[in-house]
Amino acid sequence: MEALVASAIGALTAAGIYLMLRQRTFPVIIGLTLLTYAVNVFLFTSGRLATGLPGIYSSNAAGYSDPLPQALVLTAIVISFGMTAVIVMMALGAFLEAGHDKVDMNDEDTPVEGGQK
C-alpha cells in the first residue's frame, strides 16, 4: 500500500511540475493544483498510513491515526483553495489586461534599466 501512495505522490508531483513548466497560465494553475495534492498527501503520510482506526476519541479505542498531520493538512487544503482562487484571478486579470495568457515575460515587458527616476 505504501508503494501505491508513494507512487501516486510522485506521479502527481511529476505531472504538476511538467505542467508548471508550460508557457500558458492555465496549465500552470492546473500544475500547481496537482502539486498541491501531492504536497498535502505527502504531509498526511508523515503521520504514517493506517486504515480502520477511529477518527474520534473514545475511551476504549485500540489506537488512533495521527491527528496532528491531519489538522495541518486540513488547513493546508483550505489555504491552497484561497491561493488557487487568487492565482486564477491573477491569470484572468493578466489575460484581460495583456490580451494573451503567456506566463513568461517577453522583451517588451522587461523593466527599463535603472527603474523609475
Binding site: A6, G10, A38
Partner: peptide, 11 residues
C-alpha cells in the same frame, strides 16, 4: 525535470 522531481518525491 518533472520526472526527476517526481521520482525524488516518491522515493
Amino acid at each position: 525535470i518533472a520526472v526527476i522531481a517526481g521520482v525524488g518525491v516518491a522515493a
